[in-house]
Simulated scan of single mutants.
Amino acid sequence: MGLSSHLPSPRGVMRAVTSRSGTDRPHWAARIEDVKNSVVSGVLRRLRWDLRLQPFHGLGSGGRVHVLAKVLYASPGTPADFHDQPVHDMRTMAVRGWRNFAGQVAPHSTVHVLLGDHEFTVRADRSGIVDAHLEVSLPPGHHQAVLWTVPGNEVTADITVVPPEAEVGLISDIDDTVMVTWLPRPLLAFWNAFVVHQSSRQVVPGMPMLYQRLAREHPAMPVVYLSTGAWNVFPVLKRFLYRNGYPDGPLLLTDWGPTNTGFFRSGPEHKHRALAQLAAEFPTMRWILVGDDGQHDPSIYAEFAERHPELVDSVLIRRLTEPEQLLAHGSRRPRDSSPHYGGTPLTLTAPDGHGLLSALQRTGRIRS
C-alpha cells in the first residue's frame, strides 16, 4: 500500500500491551506448537520471508479502541495488503479460506498502530494475534487504523467508534444463528477453511431482515458478532455477512490451536470473557443477545443477565430443528433447557428470524 511516506507525525508515541499475555504455563501441546513456530519462523527468516498483517474489524468507545490483527509470514514479494482486500472481492475471499489455515504465524511480533495522530506499539501473542485495548479518543463513526511491523508493509483496519448516544447494542452468535452449514460441529473448522463459496452456506431465513429492522429501530446501535470460530475464517465469515445483507460490525473470534489448558480453547469461556469485556467497555449499553439453542448460548446469556441485569435488553434464541440439534451436539433436544435469566429480561424464541421479528412486534419492541 506504500503508506509509510504518508504517515502523519504523531504528537506522541505511546506504548500499549496486548490483553492476551497470560502468565499461566501452557499445555504441553501448546509448548510443542511454540517450538514448531519458533523453528519454522527461524527457517522462514533465513529464507527472507516477510511479515504481513491481517487486519480485523475493531470497536471503540469515547476513550478506548479495541484493535485486532494477526501477524503472519509471507513469501518475498507478497503484497503488503494481501489480506486487506474489499469484503466484496469474491476472488480473493475464495482463496484466503484455506490459505489462512496453512500460513505460518509470527508469534510475539512488535506491531505499530496509528490511530488519528497517536502512535502505539503493541505485541502479538504466541499465536500471532494482536488484541489490544488502546487509550485514545476518536469521534463516533467509521475510522481506519494503520498497522505495520516495518515501514512499507502498512495495512488498514476498520474501526467502529460507538456514539455516546447509543443506548442499545446487538450481540449475535454466527453458526446456526445467522448461518447454517448442516454439518456436525467437529467438521465446522474444516468446512469453513476449505468451502468458501456463497452457495455452500445457508442463511437462516429472516435473520438479515430482523437485524436490519433492529438497526432501523436503533440507528446508533453497534452490532458485534461473537463466535467460537477461528480468526482464520474471518474473511469468509465477513463476506458471508456482507453478501446476505447483515449489518456491518466487528467479529470477535478465537485463536486456532492449543491453549494454556488443552488442545483446544473453550468456546463458552471465550464468549463469557468477550461479554465481560463489552460490559466493561460500555457500562450503560443495553444489549440484545441473539443466539441458538444448539450449543451453550442460552446458559451463557442467562449467566450474563444474572450478573448484569441492567445491561440486557432482551434475549432472542433461535430454536433449531431436530436434525440441526443432532448435528450440533448429538441429541434431538436443546443442549440448554429453560435456563434462568436473572432480572427476567425479555426472552423470545422462534425457529427463524421471521418468527423472532413477529414476536418482537407483538411485544412492541419493534413497530409493525
Score class of each variant (00 low, 15 high):
G257T: 09
M93D: 07
H118P: 05
S41L: 02
S19K: 13
G60W: 06
M179I: 09
D158R: 14
T344S: 13
P151H: 09
V236T: 14
P139H: 05
V315H: 10
P351R: 08
D173K: 09
F120P: 06
P8Q: 03
G229V: 00
A279N: 11
L183A: 03
R96K: 15
L348M: 10
E33R: 14
D313V: 11
F282W: 03
S75Q: 08
G262K: 13
S199Q: 15
G206F: 04
T110I: 07
S200Q: 15
G42C: 02
D34Y: 11
Q85L: 09
A74S: 14
S75D: 14
T349Q: 09
V168W: 14
Q277I: 08
G58D: 01
P219F: 06
P86E: 11
H88D: 15
H197M: 04
I129M: 10
V161C: 00
M90S: 15
V180N: 13
I171P: 09
S41E: 10
F264P: 01
K271Q: 11
A305F: 13
G62T: 00
L44N: 02
Q277A: 15
S337M: 15
V95C: 11
R286N: 04
Q202R: 15
H88A: 06
V196L: 10
V224T: 01
A69Q: 09
G77L: 09
T23L: 11
H133C: 06
V65M: 00
A74Y: 11
G291L: 00
S338K: 12
S200L: 13
D176G: 00
G355S: 04
R45E: 06
A350L: 04
A157F: 06
P334R: 01
M207I: 10
H66T: 03
H6Q: 15
S331Y: 03
A280W: 12
R273N: 04
V105I: 14
V105R: 13
T259Y: 12
G2W: 14
S358M: 13
R52L: 04
V43W: 09
V233K: 13
G97I: 08
V122T: 00
S358D: 12
L188I: 12
Y246P: 04
L114R: 10
A305I: 03
I288L: 06
R126V: 00
R52Q: 07
T321D: 08
Q144W: 08
F190H: 15
V224P: 08
G128D: 04
R332Q: 09
P8H: 05
S21M: 15
D81T: 08
K70Y: 09
R185D: 01
M1V: 07
L241V: 08
R286M: 02
L68T: 07
P298E: 04
A276K: 15
H308C: 05
A30T: 11
V43I: 07
A80R: 13
L210I: 02
M179N: 10
G116T: 03
S127I: 02
D50Y: 15
H6Y: 14
H57F: 06
N192M: 11
D352M: 02
G262V: 07
G206R: 09
R243M: 08
R239M: 12
P323I: 03
R213T: 03
G294P: 07
V312G: 01
T349G: 03
L360Q: 04
P79K: 10
A132N: 01
S199V: 14
L68S: 00
R307P: 05
R11Q: 05
R45T: 02
A145M: 08
P235M: 01
M221D: 11
S331F: 00
S41P: 12
V168G: 00
V39A: 08
M285K: 03
H88N: 14
